[in-house]
Design a protein around this nucleic acid. Structure first.
Length: 281
DNA sequence: GGAAGATGACAAG
DNA sequence: TTGTCCTCTTCCC
């Protein structure tokens, strides 16, 4: 679940259910018990997302920093809280709703200064209107690292995960191993605009859908994708299956310890594909 | 019943 | 680059 759009939805849901209220804070699993006791019955001001980070502001200048990591979940549910199921690190609750956090990489109390330190390390976040994408371009255009690695680097762009990076590269026909400094300015600008639009779609729908209308299941007469991730995608976790555009078998490889997926024909840097150049949007 | 794997990030060497 | 952490689901025996 957790790429940037997930955290923005979460921040909105948490603020909606708990913002401006005094909340019960507990750690049924126990690992956050001491800090939870400090926060219990205090005023929750609101929650905000930055990249894949979530910050929940409480009274007295306290911030709760949450990072979901690979498989963390944070469920916000209407209704009275039931007995905890599984390893619930953190539970927020009022009489009318509750939220359970499981498996996070980070769940810690922070001061405002510590929060600022986290924020200062993040590259521009496509979901925030006030960011300067030029900062990301400077880092990409001066780097010899593969574009696929740069897109996942939170210091370069904040909030992009394995799904968005694979799909963005496909949509722009960029070979994942091309060096950052070999990306053209116009390619970058198109990718950034597309990423902003894709991630806003993700915030709206709660899914990552990257397939253009012409390649949707109904249009192509193929089965819709069914898995835990839910969205219609071109290449993510489709290794060995035919490309929706050119039918070539999709490739996979471990890059920087993460699974990378791409189409060797559509993303071959220069050679033309059977279906022509995909356009953003 | 157990292993493998997953949309992530960090420290150590 | 490798190891480590966090939890749950899926798959295989």
């Amino acid at each position: 679940m957790p790429e940037g759009h997930t955290l923005y939805r979460l921040a909105t849901a948490l603020t909606g259910s708990f913002g401006g209220r005094r909340v019960r804070v507990g750690s049924p699993q126990g690992r956050f018990a001491d800090s939870a006791a400090l926060l219990d019955r205090s005023l929750l001001r609101g929650a905000e997302a930055a990249g894949k980070h979530l910050f929940i502001q409480f009274s007295a200048g306290r911030w709760l920093h949450v990072h979901l990591g690979l498989y963390g979940t944070f469920e916000v549910v209407a209704g009275p809280a039931p007995a905890p199921r599984g390893a619930v690190r953190l539970r927020l609750s009022t009489a009318s709703s509750y939220a359970d956090l499981r498996g996070p990489t980070a769940c810690e109390l922070q001061t405002g200064a510590q929060r600022e330190a986290v924020l200062s390390r993040l590259g521009p976040d496509p979901l925030r209107p006030d960011v300067d994408p030029e900062l990301a371009w400077r880092r990409i255009s001066s780097s010899s690292r593969p574009v696929a690695g740069l897109l996942m680097d939170q210091n370069v762009i904040a909030g992009v995960g394995n799904v968005y990076r694979a799909e963005l590269l496909f949509r722009h026909r960029i070979a994942p191993h091309r060096q950052g400094r070999d990306l053209s300015r116009s390619e970058w600008e198109a990718m950034w605009m597309d990423l902003v639009a894709l991630m806003h779609d993700g915030v709206r729908t709660g899914r990552v859908d990257t397939v253009r209308d012409a390649h949707l299941p109904a249009v192509m007469g193929r089965q819709p994708r069914v898995d835990d991730h839910g969205g219609e995608v071109y290449v993510y976790r489709r290794a060995g299956q035919p490309c929706h555009v050119c039918a070539e078998a999709l490739a996979t490889e471990l890059l920087d310890g993460r699974n990378l997926f791409w189409c060797p024909r559509c993303q071959s840097d220069g050679r033309s594909s059977a279906a022509g150049r995909p356009r953003p949007g």
